[in-house]
């Protein structure tokens, strides 16, 4: 007891077991069902694209950090999450070099040059998807979606890119049979690798909410806004051909609402801000889907809302305990 070598540090002296690795690991676990369903519907090529995308994101992150003489942080698993999300956002018809180009844009341009994890102001995977859509439109939109392993394509088995494209192009009001509905919910429709199976995505989203990785606020307000707004446009006769309940299970909405709009770095931290983020994403998504040139609006809506996040956070600061109003 004579010569104790004691550590002196500031309080608190205990820390929770939570860590960045656990959070990112939970996101990977939550994405597993959608990834597995993606491989089931789109075949081995889907798995290949996921592996290439994840590997290139990790390598670009490590390479950039080595080159700029920073500590290499790929073990935090965040690059793997970005890589997987990017692959899930690609059509299975993508050439194998496409996720490599996308991975470079996501990790180097969108994430690392702004300071790495937590500093990116837009979602890296979505930024890369937008970059690829703008640079290689023929590989990433429209006809790119016509290939599916199972051969089931759209409403009434009509050959079209995706159900949303079908609705956008159709002059008539399409009738959705119960089997169309089941196909949409389980993912047996056209779309990117990871966006089609709504059930798997909702399951993963619930896992993240239960594990307290994300809050329900962004996904629930996002999906509800799309449902309500689409219904309003439909029943006021502005867009009578829309199919509100069917549409929330199609396109990138579930993937976007649970996994992309909730990206920590590019979404608000305040509770009220998160609701605003969800409503904003829902509003822009619906407007693009109904009035825009693209049949699909999830990516751009989230990217646009990402840019508003600092502003939202600034004006939605929570009221503090015992706050005294000025001049009261």
């Amino acid at each position: 007891m004579e010569n104790l070598k004691l550590l002196v540090s500031s309080t608190p002296h205990i820390r929770s077991n939570d860590s960045i690795e656990k959070i990112m690991g939970d996101v990977l676990i939550a994405l597993a069902p959608a990834s597995i369903m993606g491989i089931y519907f789109f075949g081995f090529k889907a798995l290949l694209l996921m592996i290439i995308s994840m590997a290139s994101c990790v390598l670009f992150e490590a390479g950039y950090q080595k080159l700029t003489k920073q500590p290499v942080t790929v073990t935090d698993l965040s690059a793997l999450v970005t890589g997987l999300l990017l692959a899930l956002n690609l059509p299975v018809s993508s050439p194998v070099w496409l996720p490599i180009v996308g991975g470079f844009f996501a990790i180097v341009v969108a994430k690392q040059v702004f300071g790495g994890l937590g500093q990116n102001f837009i979602n890296p995977a979505l930024a890369a998807r937008a970059f690829l859509v703008a640079s290689y439109p023929t590989l990433t939109t429209g006809g790119a979606f016509t290939q599916t392993a199972k051969g089931v394509i759209g409403i009434d088995g009509i050959s079209a890119a995706t159900p949303l494209a079908q609705i956008a192009e159709s002059k008539d009001i399409l009738t959705v049979s119960s089997s169309d509905f089941v196909n949409a919910i389980f993912g047996n429709i056209g779309g990117t690798i990871g966006e089609t199976c709504a059930v798997a995505l909702i399951l993963g989203g619930i896992y993240l909410i239960v594990r307290k990785v994300i809050s329900w606020k962004i996904p629930v307000s996002y999906i509800l806004t799309v449902l309500i707004l689409t219904s309003i446009f439909k029943y006021t006769g502005i867009a009578p051909n829309r199919l509100p309940l069917y549409e929330i299970f199609t396109g990138g909405l579930m993937l976007g609402a649970f996994f992309m709009a909730t990206d920590y770095a590019s979404s608000p931290v305040t509770p009220v801000g998160q609701i605003i983020m969800g409503i904003g994403c829902g509003l822009i998504t619906t407007l693009i889907r109904i009035f825009g040139g693209y049949p699909e609006g999830v990516s751009y809506s989230i990217l646009l809302m990402n840019l508003c996040v600092p502003l939202i956070d600034r004006y939605t600061k929570p009221k503090i305990f015992g706050e005294v109003k000025k001049n009261a």
Binding site: I20, I23, T73, L117, G118, Y264, V269
Partner: peptide
Amino acid sequence: LPPERNCIRCGK
């Protein structure tokens, strides 16, 4: 004590 890392803006 674990090492300090970047804020990931989780809001916890």
